[in-house]
Design a binder for these strands. Structure first.
Lengths: 94, 94
DNA sequence: TATAAATGTAGCCGCTCGCCGACATTCCGA
DNA sequence: TCGGAATGTCGGCGAGCGGCTACATTTATA
């Protein structure tokens, strides 16, 4: 699942929480935040604290992976095609 | 690259920015934040806004991927086996 | 149906964010 | 060597976060 907005993240978190049969209060305690925080984040709160979000994902056992863009360029465009990436993302798909 | 702390994220962002030959000011403008924000985040600021961080990653063309617990994407669960724990505890249904 | 749990909402408060503007320092090229 | 750009730092300011308590609503259980 690609994350591009707080909403995506919220959905993932909520989904995972339910799968783990955890209620918001319990999850909140494990993360070290208030229940309200969990609610807000699950609803896609855009201004949540980075560290808390990462902690939440960690507690839920959700690994966050990013493509730092291999420096050795794995047989593809040598340069960086930000344009292509962003454009494609904006367009959606073909 | 697995992201577990704001520091990890900052490193990735900085690395990518340099690779794109962008200065902080330019990147900041593209993301829609101040230069100070870029500096803080690159230094691993733990309380940055989620949405801004995601936007930064997007601008830099860095896809963020998470394992929302797909059927075949059964993680290795090397760190915390919350799944196993909870599952076992809840076991008894079906 | 009645009860309890879980979820969502509201207002108040302290604290920090993110921004602005300016300046010091470091880095790199001419 | 010199100069300019890039980077990092400082102080102040308005705005909103995140925590708390209590309550309303929805859902699930007995």
């Amino acid at each position: 699942m690609l994350i591009r907005t707080p909403g995506d993240l919220g959905a993932v978190i909520r989904d995972r929480r339910k799968r783990l049969k955890l209620d918001q209060a319990t999850l909140a305690k494990r993360i070290g935040v208030s229940r309200q925080w969990v609610i807000e984040v699950e609803h896609g709160h855009p201004r949540a604290e980075l560290a808390l979000v990462l902690r939440a994902l960690d507690v839920l056992g959700i690994p966050v992976d990013v493509n730092s863009g291999g420096p050795t360029s794995r047989g593809s465009t040598s340069a960086v095609d930000i344009n292509a990436i962003v454009t494609k993302a904006k367009e959606g798909k073909t």
